[in-house]
Amino acid sequence: MERTQLKNISISGSGTSSGGEFNQVKVNGSAHIYGDLICEEFKCNGSAHLEGNITTDTAKINGSTHFEGDVEVKEMTINGSTDIDGHLLCDELKVQGSSSIKGDVKGKEIIVRGSASVQGNVSSDEVDVKGQIKIKGDCEAESFEARGNFKIDGLLNAGTIDVELLRHCEAKEIGGENITVKKTRDASGFKKLIKFFMSNHTDQLTAEVIEGDYLYLEHTHAEVVRGNTIEIGPGCDIKRIEYKTSLEIDQNAKVGTQEKI
C-alpha cells in the first residue's frame, strides 16, 4: 500500500476515533480510540486511551496514555505516564516518566530515566537504568547497566552487568560473564538529600545466587556466589563462595564457607 496516501488525524479537545491506518496520529486533548491503530507517527500531548493494538514507527507520549493491547513500535519515548496491558515490542524505548507494562518487553535498547514496571519478562540487547525498574519475570540483556534501584523477581541474565547501588536492589538470581556491583561513589548534594529522607534504606544488593566468570561485588548479600575470578569488596555478606581461578576477600566483608573447585 502506498504510504503517502494515508491521512493524518489530529484530535484536539475531546474526541473519539474507531482506529485504522494513518500517517500521523496526534492527540492534543483527550482521545478515546476504539480499534487497532496502524500509523507512522503517534504523538500524545494530552491523554489517550486505545482499546486495540498499535503498530507505529515512532510513539511519543508527553501526557498519559493507556494501551489496552500490544504495542509494536520502532522508537518510543515516554515523557509522561504510560500503561500497556499487552506486550511491548520495540527497537528503542526511552522512559523519562513512568510506565507500567503488564506483558513482556522485547527491545534492542531500553533506557529508563524515570520509573518502569514490567509484569512479564524483559529481553533486550541493552538495558540502561538510571532511576527505577521493577520486573516480575526474568531480565535478559547483553548489557545491563543500572545506576539506581532495581527489583527483579526472576533471573537477571546479562553478558555484562554493571551496577552502581542506590538503596535496596534485588534480584532472585544473577548470571552472566562480567558482573560488577559497586556502591555509588559520588555523593552529590541531591543524593545526600535523598538519603536524608530515606535514612532507613542502605545501599545494598540482595540475591540468592550470583554466578559468573568475573565478579566484583560490594555491599552484596547472597546465599551463594559462584565464578571463575571473584573479588569480594567491602560490605558483603555471603554465605558460600565457590570459585575456580582466584578469590580475594576484603577485610570488611563477611563470608561463610569458601571452596575452590
Binding site: E177, G212, V224, G227
Partner: peptide, 28 residues
Amino acid sequence: SYGQLYRWKRKNLIPENWFIRKSTFTGQ
C-alpha cells in the same frame, strides 16, 4: 564457564524447561 552457559540460555540455545530447580543442602 558460567558465562557461556548463561549466554547460550539467553540466545535460546538451551530450552528453559531444561533448567530444573531443586533444593539441596547448599540451597537451591
